[in-house]
Design a protein around this nucleic acid. Sequence first.
DNA 1: TGCTTTTTTTGACAAATGTCAAAATCGTTA
DNA 2: TAACGATTTTGACATTTGTCAAAAAAAGCA
Lengths: 186, 186
Amino acid sequence: MNPLIKQLKKYGNLTSEIETELNEKIKSLIKQKGDFLLKEGQIVSNLFVIEKGLVRSFYNINEREINVWFGFESGILGSVMPLFFSQPSIKNIQFLEDTTLYYISSNDLESFYKSSQEMNTIGRKMAEEYCKILEERSFLLQTHTAEQRYHWLLKNQPEALQRISLGHIASYLGISQETLSRIRKK
Amino acid sequence: MNPLIKQLKKYGNLTSEIETELNEKIKSLIKQKGDFLLKEGQIVSNLFVIEKGLVRSFYNINEREINVWFGFESGILGSVMPLFFSQPSIKNIQFLEDTTLYYISSNDLESFYKSSQEMNTIGRKMAEEYCKILEERSFLLQTHTAEQRYHWLLKNQPEALQRISLGHIASYLGISQETLSRIRKK
DNA sequence: TGCTTTTTTTGACAAATGTCAAAATCGTTA
DNA sequence: TAACGATTTTGACATTTGTCAAAAAAAGCA
């Protein structure tokens, strides 16, 4: 089954007709380490799924890169502003490893939302789930110390620590690389 | 027009039939300052709108209260876990002023989602908009200093500083009350 | 008005984290 | 293997923010 359809189905059922139609609209994309999927200011309104590879999204602030999210195999990927609001992205999305993606355009997605109750529900559930993830992340950032945030990552995304360099992890946790190095030494 | 319907309509059109049906399901509620709408562990699966009053939602961590959100007049209000996932809330919701609310149960909401494409779209758009708000908040917490966060609030929610005590604001910004007092002195 | 309670401010100090520069380590490739 | 570049660690120190206790100010109430 197409990897994107497989992920969509986690949020709700799809009739086989819709599934067939989806298959016609979904495209794939292969990118290399270091490539950008999307830079700040661009409007790339696709919903992606990562079949294989590793992705980061980050802000550019005062000539610094601040990571806010990492995407792994089978993760859903998109930028909120282009995808939900058809507006320029305020984040960058870059590949940290060679990556294979499947995607559907937001235009096609919108058509499905109009024609299919199932797809509309899936779209809603995806957004709802992302709310949950984001609330958890705000909570982590608001109330936990650098050390606690590191332990949270160790527990919840141990693979991240294997595959991602310390500098990237540190900025994701909102701390300096040196502080993270010292925390990790313990 | 019912205040809740008015807010829903900001996200999409509603047929007059659906509007009539909604009117039959929406109830109202008056609460006093200090009352709780919802405590940690409870499942109160309603979607509320604040007609008049002021609301906070907060976590209890190590016998401390950490505010994560304030709700003002005409704001949409609900707890993600009960509303989206029918699971116990991990947050508390309390009134900081006498407050009048309108609400619909998530069961009724789900029925509308099934029967009405428009309502389903509105539900999706609400979740999508909340994603945007939450991303902005994570970003603020991850990359800004205490002082920058205070200035952000000053610019984006000046009314909050008028109506909410300093201690509550400080915890919302993720800083101590003393630090906020010193920042404000400048 | 005067009293009580709550909220805010202040001071002294401690703890956490950041910054900068240099050294050490690791990985890749010639 | 040797050499290069990228990543990580370490040290010294500065800055930010937190904590605790007390004082001051403001708000609520009899």
